[in-house]
């Protein structure tokens, strides 16, 4: 066997074995939000001063408000493990009277804003969904998580109009201003 024949054989074997490596990546979810295309949340929606006359109890407000009512109330961000929606200006708040896991001594909960110590029924009575919407009433396509300091258990005062309220306990407010405590 000549020198070149042996070389060619060895090279061919290696090339054959190494060929056909998969180049494609696993399919990525088509629904990933395009961060670059997200509009910013208007600064005017974040209030510099605390609105006057904020109702202290979200539970009481839920019981008396109906769709279209203007409301101002105090609450804390939380009520779910992730109270924010990625890619949409929506977040969940809970009544300030609700005790978070962080306020329970000896509780090592890593996500105290989800109020997981409460029963689902009690939690539902105490929570509301807040949206920043566009002129058509659709939520703005931007995440508000960590925007202007908005994060889990942050105390806020929400001013807006009730857009959904039903007997099941759902309560959605389209906010025209939110004040965030320091």
């Amino acid at each position: 066997m000549s020198h070149s024949t042996v070389k060619i054989l060895c090279t061919a074997l290696l090339v054959t074995a190494l060929s056909g490596c998969p180049g494609g990546d696993a399919a990525a979810p088509a629904s990933a939000p395009d961060a670059a295309a997200e509009p910013a949340i208007p600064d005017a929606l974040y209030l510099a001063a605390r609105p006057e006359g904020a109702a202290p109890s979200l539970v009481a407000l839920k019981g008396t408000s109906k769709v279209g009512d203007s409301v101002v109330f105090e609450a804390r961000v939380g009520g779910r493990k992730d109270p924010f929606v990625e890619g949409r200006a929506i977040f969940v708040v809970a009544d300030t009277g609700l005790k978070s896991c962080a306020e329970t001594e000896g509780d090592g909960c890593k996500t105290p804003w989800d109020y997981c110590c409460e029963t689902p029924e009690d939690l539902l009575k105490n929570v509301a969904t807040i949206r920043f919407v566009d002129a058509a009433g659709a939520p703005l396509k931007a995440s508000v998580k960590d925007h202007k300091g908005l994060s889990g258990l942050k105390q806020v005062v929400v001013r807006g109009k009730v857009s959904e309220a039903d007997e099941s306990g759902n309560f959605v407010v389209d906010a025209d201003g939110v004040w965030i405590s320091d």
Binding site: P29, G87, V127, T129, D166
Partner: peptide, 19 residues
């Protein structure tokens, strides 16, 4: 539609307790 729409729905229908 996109995933954010479904997550927004879940955040607005708190009675269904969806993720």
């Amino acid at each position: 539609g996109e995933l954010a729409d479904v997550q927004a729905f879940a955040a607005q229908r708190l009675d269904l307790e969806l993720t």
